[in-house]
Simulated scan of single mutants.
Amino acid sequence: MTMTTTAAVGLTEVSKVYGSGPGAVTALDKVTVSLSRGTFTAIMGPSGSGKSTFLHCAAGLDRPTHGTVRLGDIDLTGLRERALTELRRSRVGFVFQAYNLVPSLTVRQNIELPLVLGAAAPEAGWLQHVVTTVGLADRLGHRPAELSGGQQQRVAIARALVTRPEVVFADEPTGALDTRTGRQVLELLRAVVRTTGQTVVMVTHDPGAASFADRVVFLADGRLAGALESPTAAAVAERMTGLGEW
């Protein structure tokens, strides 16, 4: 597969095998996919389909057993661990279900944490733009415990954006939120893609969440099982039913 300049993430023939011998488990099986810059992609599939492994390999958190992973023009597969760590710190953002905020730090300090840890500071005004975009301008002095779950996830999204990364990877970002708050967070991610040209890749099990994406990529048994453009919740649920999830 030839990678174009518009691709933010590219996996070519990626396999991930855990263990060896008769007990080996193939979590990903020769997956090839290209995700365009400035798009919002949801990754879906039944339990055990390889969604989390896909995210971990694509984000450089785990190395594939075979195949190539590219972030923009960089081949992650050949990077040494230190270079991979530096790349994750500066060119990738992460949002998790559990927020992963530092309780003793203020909202501002949590957002700026990647910069403190060594990521290069973005141009002047970007931090303020991010804070305004996520709606936290009046909460910068608060601690996480003083915020609602939705506000804490907004802090996590701002932290993921502060280095102006090439890609933000989100792992079940609304899993701990109620439906209304989850929808607000998804609308925020959608707005971030639209207004800043950010690329977002989100793993989710929720058809409603997936409907906020531009495209849904389906996995089943570690293999690609098709994609859906401009998805609706009903169309995603129907496709997931076909994969045996419901």
Rank of each mutant, 00 (worst) to 15 (best):
D29Q: 11
V95A: 00
E238H: 12
L115I: 15
T53K: 09
M44I: 04
R239M: 01
V200D: 00
V192Q: 02
L127F: 15
R223Y: 07
A158F: 01
M3Q: 14
L186M: 15
V155D: 10
V134M: 10
Q152F: 12
L113R: 02
A176K: 02
M240S: 06
M202I: 04
W126R: 08
R139S: 14
S148N: 10
P114Y: 12
V102Y: 07
W246Y: 06
G141V: 02
S148R: 11
R180I: 09
Q198V: 00
G38D: 07
A124I: 11
S230F: 06
V167F: 01
G19A: 01
F96K: 03
T106P: 09
E172T: 09
I43K: 02
E13C: 09
A237N: 00
A233E: 15
P144Q: 12
T199S: 09
V131M: 07
L35E: 00
Q151F: 11
D171H: 05
P122D: 02
G222T: 10
R70S: 14
R190D: 13
L140K: 09
G149N: 07
V102H: 04
G23E: 13
L71H: 06
D75H: 14
T77D: 07
L71S: 08
R223M: 12
G21P: 09
P122N: 00
V31Q: 08
W126Q: 10
T6V: 13
A176D: 09
T181C: 03
G10A: 15
P165I: 01
G38S: 09
E229K: 08
V193N: 05
H56S: 14
T6W: 00
V236T: 13
C57A: 12
R194I: 02
L105C: 06
A7K: 10
P173G: 06
T179Y: 13
S15K: 09
R37W: 01
S15T: 15
G149D: 08
N100A: 12
T196F: 03
E146C: 10
Q97A: 05
V107T: 11
R183Y: 02
K16I: 07
L84Q: 11
A42V: 00
A119G: 15
A83S: 15
V192P: 07
P46T: 08
H205T: 03
A210Q: 04
G19Q: 05
A59Q: 00
G78N: 12
G149P: 04
G118L: 05
L117I: 12
A98P: 00
G149F: 05
T26W: 11
D62W: 05
V116L: 13
T39V: 02
P165N: 06
L228W: 06
T196Y: 01
M1E: 11
R239T: 11
N100Q: 14
P64N: 10
R37C: 05
R80V: 12
R91P: 00
S90Q: 15
A225D: 13
F96Y: 11
G125E: 07
T133E: 13
M1G: 13
P144C: 15
R139K: 15
S148A: 11
K16T: 14
S36C: 01
T196E: 14
T41A: 01
H142L: 12
P207D: 08
Q97I: 04
L161N: 13
L71T: 08
L161P: 04
S148T: 12
V200A: 00
